[in-house]
Simulated assay, not measured.
Amino acid sequence: MNFRNLISFILLILILGLFQILFLKNLALFGIAFCFVYLVGILSIPLQIRAVPLLLISFGIGLIIDVFYDTLGLNAAAATFLAFLRPYWLKILRPNGGYDDSTQPTLQEMGIGWFISYSLPLIFAFCLIFFIADQWGTGTFIGVVNKSLFSSIFTLVLAIIVQLLFFKRRRGI
């Protein structure tokens, strides 16, 4: 990752985090669908990053969100779990020729089908861990799965909208 990409990635994380904190903190569709748009930043980290920096970045982003949400580490734990699963899921989705070194896992680079198959299971795993920890002992299993499913879909839709509006299309060589 060169210096320009690093600066743009940091700006992306800051903007998504601020948007999450300022606008999406109290947003819940029908009381069950929450949005975690800051996950777009974690999901769009370049493919060649190693596991430990990915885990640390995800933990840090989740912890910052936790500070503003007063959720006592729920976002940090779920984001770290997402970062833990990401390399394994990318191996499952790897094309026959492998990934380019410059490939970023974004909608514009990989296409809508690949992006949905990449991000939806990871977002669902994040939401499942988040809501299991959030409602431990007080919620039903069906309620947790319901919130996880609808929050995953809501987050994915907003992630696609954010990428269509704000991510640049990569120029071919």
Rank of each mutant, 00 (worst) to 15 (best):
N2S: 06
N2C: 07
N2I: 08
N2Y: 03
F3G: 04
F3N: 10
F3W: 11
R4S: 14
R4D: 12
R4I: 10
R4E: 13
N5T: 15
N5A: 14
L6M: 10
L6R: 06
S8N: 08
I10G: 09
L11H: 08
L12P: 00
I13H: 06
I13F: 06
I13R: 05
I15D: 02
I15W: 02
G17L: 14
G17Y: 05
L18Y: 13
F19P: 00
Q20W: 02
Q20V: 02
L22D: 13
L22A: 13
F23H: 02
F23T: 00
F23D: 00
K25R: 15
K25H: 07
K25A: 00
N26C: 01
L27F: 12
L27R: 03
L27N: 01
A28Q: 06
A28R: 06
L29N: 00
L29S: 02
F30D: 05
F30M: 10
F30R: 12
G31Q: 05
G31M: 07
I32Q: 04
A33Q: 10
A33N: 09
F34R: 01
C35L: 02
C35H: 00
C35S: 05
V37N: 03
V37E: 00
V37Y: 00
Y38S: 15
L39P: 02
V40H: 01
V40Y: 00
V40G: 01
G41I: 03
I42S: 07
I42F: 08
I42P: 11
S44V: 13
I45T: 12
I45M: 13
I45K: 05
P46W: 15
L47E: 10
I49A: 07
I49F: 10
R50Y: 10
R50D: 14
V52L: 11
P53C: 11
P53G: 12
L55W: 06
L55G: 04
L56V: 14
L56F: 10
S58G: 14
F59R: 07
F59H: 06
G60R: 04
G60M: 09
G60E: 13
I61N: 02
G62Y: 07
L63N: 13
L63E: 15
L63A: 15
I65G: 05
